[in-house]
Design a protein around this nucleic acid. Structure first.
Lengths: 257, 257
DNA sequence: CGGTACATTGAAGGGGCTCAATCCACGTGG
DNA sequence: CCACGTGGATTGAGCCCCTTCAATGTACCG
């Protein structure tokens, strides 16, 4: 069975068999990370990319006055290291929200990929674009949506992302975040997150119990949140980078090598 | 003289002379865009990247209830098209805030770059990382900063970015945004932007008059806003991709090929 | 059994919004 | 040359969403 990384990437860009092999080959042995432990620390140098194989993690920044902003939630199959990994030192911390396992991809391997297998490098970078699009969506959330819309939108996005990797079924999924962590991602205080969840529950739209999200009325929640699929659409690359075009790809590799 | 694009890119990653030539060559003739005109429209397919050569532009999204969120301000030398250009249809609109001129880079040229000149492609993608980092910073703004901090931080960031391309001097720069546009980027209402600017003025920290920002007390504003350079640092690629180290670079290619 | 982590609820206050009026600079046509 | 229209800045009054502070409840764990 394919790894979650492969499964997620192929949702966006078709992967050649050789590329799947290469992805597998690039990763180190699995590495266990304990809950609350930092995988990447803000301000520190680091020269490896990670892939989250299992568990939840959060990319975050602490701000002067003691507050904290979670930039995004990292799910299994996601890369850890963009965009910070391209700077002198990490711009943000990434810490495990649950027990997690990761594998490492040495930075040098990624760089080398540009020479040896540019098309795979391109595909990986495209997945980074997807991540940037999620940031942008999050921006709209914080800038222009009410607390109710934010919470609803957040939970729907998580649902959609988890479904993509087979970790959520139709209406429910496990969601290990505390209300404090939700508040930190949505720019809300803990009590208000709580009240907002209560309202969703009272309105029979959505319940969280025992870390399980149960969406009672998907359409209503989606319309309340203004949720659209957007960045989950497939990439649009007419003809190019297409898995059915293997001959051409291999030829290119030969030339550039 | 080098173009602004080259000048900006070289701040982050060293460019080889051949790469500079190539960048120049990839761009179409200049294209004039009138104020308020959309360069890219949300939801529409489009298959070219743009480079903003002159003027200001904004990447934005309209939300259900009539509001609008500006995701970031596009300055001369910036690419237009990330991350939206990698999706079926544009995720956001980009519209000119002033009279502007752009040049086009056909999407196909960029894709081809991965085969013909992967290292330049890599550098361009690295500049996209920088953009993603700005999104993240903007997230912290909206999530965890007060109106006063937001406005101050925003104006300092613009100042720093404009200095990078030689469009701002020590303490002043031209800033063509209306208060409404500032409000749309900072998630604030027009009256409140106004009151906040007034406060900055009353405290002798910063003035805007005739579309000119005058920073009276840079240190005070910076500390108020918690402004740090962060994503303006150079990229940290020890040895690799370094223009002064071409021999080693080639060696890496040879090994990994 | 006490301790810790987290959820829940209440009361009070404030930061920022909405609504609305006014002002100002500028361009345009009569 | 002036009247008018328009886009934008400015200011005020009232209110509401969300925060802060604080207390209580509850599950789990050593």
């Amino acid at each position: 069975m394919d790894s979650l990384l492969v499964r997620k990437l192929s949702h966006f860009v078709p992967l050649l068999p050789a590329e799947i092999e290469l992805l597998k080959d690039m990763q180190s042995a699995e590495l266990a990370v304990r809950r609350h432990r930092e995988i990447v620390s803000e301000g520190r140098r680091y020269d490896t990319l990670f892939v989250l194989l299992d568990g939840f993690a959060a990319r975050s920044r602490v701000v002067g006055n003691g507050g904290r902003q979670i930039l995004n939630i990292v799910l299994p199959g996601d890369f850890i290291g963009f965009p910070g990994c391209f700077f002198e030192s990490a711009l943000y911390s990434v810490s495990a929200l649950t027990k997690a396992t990761v594998s490492r991809i040495p930075h040098a391997r990624l760089v080398a990929l540009f020479d040896t297998y540019p098309r795979l490098a391109a595909k990986i970078f495209w997945s980074f674009s997807c991540e940037a699009a999620m940031y942008a969506e999050h921006l709209v959330d914080l800038g222009r949506r009410s607390a109710l819309e934010r919470v609803a939108h957040f939970l729907l996005e998580l649902h959609a992302r988890l479904q993509l990797i087979g970790l959520a079924d139709d209406r429910t999924y496990q969601m290990p975040l505390t209300q404090e962590q939700m508040g930190d991602t949505l720019g809300l205080s803990v009590p208000h997150v709580n009240r907002t969840l209560r309202q969703l529950r009272d309105d029979d739209l959505l319940v969280i119990e025992h870390q399980q999200v149960i969406i009672k009325d998907l359409d209503a929640v989606a319309s309340l949140a203004g949720f659209k699929w957007r960045y989950f659409q497939r990439f649009g690359l007419p003809g190019q980078l297409d898995a059915t075009d293997e001959a051409k790809t291999l030829q290119v590799v030969a030339i550039s090598a």
